[in-house]
Design a protein around this nucleic acid. Structure first.
Lengths: 117, 117
DNA sequence: TTTGCATATGCCCATATGGGAATGTAGTCC
DNA sequence: GGACTACATTCCCATATGGGCATATGCAAA
């Protein structure tokens, strides 16, 4: 076997820095391919390829508009990453106020786990 | 150029599922290589290789203890991932009132991580 | 249809992978 | 010293990559 495909899951798709930049850009709103290419200083084919990967893992959606294709972010797709890395928050949360917030949220989570109504 | 090295940054290191499992295991405390291999059902050389990658990006530390090598988690190394993905929280959390709904959906979505084209 | 712009795709290639198996190395105990 | 255990490393290989570049496709206007 070789390395896992970048289209296998969100973690792999997001491991590529340019794809993260594309997502960052799209978080500001819909963009065309050439827009993205210009903004990030990338060649159009590369952008199309990256967008393809992002599409395949469900991180972006496309919408045709004339001869352009407008890509938009599908932010919820990043939730698995957020959920996983969130379990490690305790390793860098130190300030007391932020810790309070953290504990508060933790408590809510536990409560809604016990009483899922 | 080819794909970016898994040792290039934390994002790439964490893209590999088994490495995430190793980190999850280490979040419970120090473990020896053979402990990890047994717990995850992996061969010892593979575990050593994965640990090497995790070491190179600073996610784990080693400590010699007799003829064993005890690996421990360096959780702060995951902060860049958390910080980046945290900027997308708004896409799945609308309000704190919906936190319960959010948690429910989170658990349901654990299964459907793949998104075909 | 023809022309032209916007995207997508195909091809080539250097590179890195992760698994298996074998081997090397280090530390312990006799 | 030798035997044994715990890890690390090396070699081989099938596979996927991402960039450059050329080209196909899609869509619209003349």
């Amino acid at each position: 076997m070789a390395r896992m495909a970048t289209t296998s899951d969100v973690f792999n798709a997001v491991a590529e820095p340019r794809r993260r930049l594309i997502l960052d850009l799209l978080s500001q709103g819909e963009r065309s391919v050439s827009d993205i290419a210009r903004s990030l200083g990338l060649k159009q084919p590369q952008v199309s390829k990256h967008l393809r990967v992002l599409r395949q893992v469900g991180l972006v959606s496309v919408r045709g508009s004339g001869q352009q294709r407008l890509y938009s972010l599908n932010g919820e797709g990043l939730k698995p990453v957020h959920d996983w890395v969130g379990r490690y928050e305790r390793f860098w949360i130190e300030s007391l106020d932020r810790l309070a917030d953290y504990l508060d949220e933790l408590q809510r989570k536990e409560k809604s786990d016990e009483h899922p109504d």
